[in-house]
Simulated scan of single mutants.
Amino acid sequence: MNMNELRRLAAKIDQHMQQLSAQQVNDAQAIFNRMMGYVPDLHKIWVGTSDDQLIALSNEFPGFYRYALIMEEAFEAERNKASRPYDGMARCSEQHRQQGAQLLTTAATLERGYQAFRGSGNLQVFQSQVDELGRLHRQWLSDLESFKSSLRAQGTELKVLEYVNEAFGRLAERIRKLAC
C-alpha cells in the first residue's frame, strides 16, 4: 500500500474523529465503540508504515493520532488482563475474519455517510445518495445475517456468536438511528 493510500485512510479516521468531537463525543470508551469500523483501516496503516511515516501521519492528522492512541491503550489494557471471557475460544476461520472486517468497514461507511447527510441539514438535496445508503444498509443487514448463519453452520462456539451479536448489534442500532 502506498503512502497516498495510507494518508487517505488516516484522513478518513481523522474526519470521523472530528465529527465525533463536534458531537461532543470525547470519552475514550465512547470513541472506541463508535470507531470500531475503522479498526481494519488502522491495522493497514499500522502494518504498512515505517515509524517515520507513522509519525508523519500522526502529525498531519491529529484525530487519527488520538484514535490510534485510544486503540493502543485499549489493546494494552486488554492484553494485560489476567483473564478475559474469550480466553480459550477457538479462532474463527480466515474467511470469517475477512468477512467480519468487511462488515466493520461497511458499517463505518454507513455511519459516515448518514452523519454527513444529516449534518448537511437538507436531506432532500441528497435524496438519491441517501437512497443509495439505504440500499447499502439493507445489503449490509443481509450480509450480516449471512455472516452469522455461516458462523452457526460452521459450529462456532456460542460465546463467539454472543460476542458477534453484541458488537454488530451495537453498530446496527447506531446505523438504524442515523438512518431514521
Score class of each variant (00 low, 15 high):
residue 46 W to T: 14
residue 46 W to S: 08
residue 47 V to G: 00
residue 49 T to F: 03
residue 50 S to W: 04
residue 50 S to P: 03
residue 52 D to M: 08
residue 53 Q to H: 04
residue 54 L to W: 04
residue 55 I to R: 10
residue 55 I to Q: 11
residue 58 S to M: 13
residue 59 N to T: 11
residue 59 N to Y: 06
residue 61 F to D: 00
residue 61 F to Q: 01
residue 61 F to N: 00
residue 61 F to M: 02
residue 61 F to I: 10
residue 61 F to W: 08
residue 62 P to S: 11
residue 62 P to T: 13
residue 63 G to L: 05
residue 63 G to F: 12
residue 63 G to N: 03
residue 64 F to E: 00
residue 64 F to A: 02
residue 65 Y to I: 01
residue 65 Y to D: 05
residue 65 Y to K: 10
residue 66 R to N: 11
residue 67 Y to P: 00
residue 69 L to D: 15
residue 70 I to R: 00
residue 72 E to F: 11
residue 72 E to H: 13
residue 72 E to N: 12
residue 73 E to G: 01
residue 76 E to M: 13
residue 76 E to G: 00
residue 77 A to L: 11
residue 77 A to P: 01
residue 78 E to G: 09
residue 78 E to K: 09
residue 79 R to F: 15
residue 81 K to F: 08
residue 84 R to P: 01
residue 84 R to Y: 07
residue 85 P to D: 14
residue 86 Y to L: 08
residue 87 D to V: 09
residue 90 A to R: 10
residue 90 A to N: 06
residue 91 R to P: 02
residue 91 R to K: 12
residue 91 R to W: 06
residue 92 C to F: 07
residue 92 C to T: 14
residue 95 Q to C: 04
residue 95 Q to V: 15
residue 95 Q to E: 13
residue 95 Q to R: 13
residue 96 H to W: 02
residue 96 H to Y: 07
residue 96 H to I: 04
residue 97 R to A: 08
residue 97 R to V: 15
residue 97 R to L: 15
residue 97 R to S: 06
residue 97 R to C: 13
residue 98 Q to F: 14
residue 99 Q to R: 13
residue 99 Q to I: 14
residue 101 A to Y: 06
residue 103 L to D: 03
residue 103 L to W: 09
residue 104 L to S: 05
residue 105 T to H: 07
residue 106 T to N: 06
residue 106 T to K: 11
residue 108 A to W: 06
residue 108 A to D: 04
residue 108 A to F: 10
residue 108 A to Q: 06
residue 109 T to A: 10
residue 109 T to P: 00
residue 110 L to T: 01
residue 111 E to F: 01
residue 112 R to P: 00
residue 115 Q to C: 11
residue 115 Q to V: 07
residue 115 Q to I: 09
residue 116 A to P: 00
residue 116 A to C: 08
residue 116 A to N: 06
residue 116 A to Q: 14
residue 117 F to S: 04
residue 118 R to L: 15
residue 120 S to T: 07
residue 120 S to Q: 11
residue 121 G to I: 08
